[in-house]
């Protein structure tokens, strides 16, 4: 598999007031191959999953998840954070082989 990042969808407000709690929703298109399925020839299909997801806001981790084969394909997460200063929110998904998909959004404080 190539190093091409997986498509993602991120839903969060572009602007917010300081002190507000905002909801962030994320999804990455990923098979989350469990490693328990077999192909047509009876061979086990190797496990290929997103193992770690991390969200940083102004370089501080606001949410992280360790994910295993029991997480559905196209892992979806909804979580929240408290608005501080304006700045970047960076989303990083890392698979078992260490390949990363990184996305950044900017949150502007009004």
């Amino acid at each position: 598999m190539a190093d091409t990042p997986h498509p993602t969808r991120i839903s969060m407000p572009a602007t917010a007031k300081r002190g507000d709690i905002i909801d962030i929703k994320t999804l990455i298109q990923h098979e989350m191959e469990t490693g328990y399925r077999r192909d047509a020839n009876g061979r086990v299909i190797p496990r290929d999953i997103v193992a770690h997801f991390e969200v940083r806001y102004l370089d501080e981790i606001i949410f992280a998840a360790d994910t295993f084969a029991g997480v559905s394909a196209n892992p979806y997460f909804a979580f929240s954070t408290i608005v501080g200063d304006s700045g970047p929110v960076t989303f990083t998904w890392t698979d078992l082989a260490g390949r990363k998909t990184v996305e950044t959004r900017t949150l502007t404080v009004t």
Partner: peptide, 30 residues
Amino acid sequence: IIAGQNPLAIIARYHLGPRSGRARVQSTIR
């Protein structure tokens, strides 16, 4: 999140902190 009848009992771990604001997480599992 733990499920004893799955091949792997541990489905996921969510790490939160004071910056989370609310201790609520939504996701989808198998």
